[in-house]
Design a protein around this nucleic acid. Sequence first.
DNA 1: TATTGTTATACTCTATAACTATA
DNA 2: TATAGTTATAGAGTATAACAATA
Lengths: 161, 161
Amino acid sequence: MAEPLESGQLAAYFALTEVGSLLQHAVEGQLRDSGGITYVQFQILMRLWEANGPLRMTDLADGIVYSRSGLTYQAAQLEKAGLVTRAPSPDDERSTVVELTGEGRALVGRVLPGHVEVVRQLLFTPLDDGDVRTLGAVLGRVRDHMRAAPPRSARSRRKRS
Amino acid sequence: MAEPLESGQLAAYFALTEVGSLLQHAVEGQLRDSGGITYVQFQILMRLWEANGPLRMTDLADGIVYSRSGLTYQAAQLEKAGLVTRAPSPDDERSTVVELTGEGRALVGRVLPGHVEVVRQLLFTPLDDGDVRTLGAVLGRVRDHMRAAPPRSARSRRKRS
DNA sequence: TATTGTTATACTCTATAACTATA
DNA sequence: TATAGTTATAGAGTATAACAATA
């Protein structure tokens, strides 16, 4: 174990981290300027937006790598900003369900186009359709692999099944 | 402007962000456990390690998206930990040159194999050589494009030419 | 005057542990 | 006893602006 990566692997790894980093910073700037929200908050709002309905805190936490207290903090911020509501779940009194307000939905609608534009210009401008398909396929495979083998940090409370 | 992304683009974008995020978290855990350093600190050490000699603060800042004061802070942390030295440049008295100490070099040597192993297991296990080549080529093109068109945040002091 | 870097400050974010309440 | 979530606290990281020194 612990042989060095091949140079091709190293190049791919470095390119991936640099692209991810530059993209994230550009996106963070756009989100701050156009909506006054952070990237984490945007992720939370997007999950709620996609869900098109209320989600439990636990469901929100899955996929967004995060401590539970951190999520509570962010949910409180978003609630203060009037973008989401929190209420006890009818099904399970222990759970809190979070839902997008009209204002939250409006904010996503206002912010998303610019977000998409940044991503398009930075990420997709130099790629043709074949590149995009390939990229999606390869990274999709990697993502599935990562999800299946979650060594995350072996530090959090046992998650799910 | 502001048309939605094609679904293929969206899939590629989501896969990229999720892979980047999961990978970064896994790597952060490994760096903390094996070397007691953060990812940012690791990036700084790696740049110095690759440079194989002293670098000015400004050179260090390039490539690591970062405010200058943030870099000063991290360099101070690394100096306190005995991993780097800082000294005024002989060429330009305004500049500070940062250099890896023996201890810093040893730390990189100690941490890098495990780092590589995490990356290999998470990122490269599900990929064959062709995938890796393609991924590196496509992302390399994106990276070059991003470097050329740096809208970063149009907020920092003008950088370079 | 422009550039390099540091400092002071204030704020945001994050994690850990302790705690409450429900299943 | 286990699970869902919150709170308290404390620390690390970041950015902005003001600053000093050199080119």
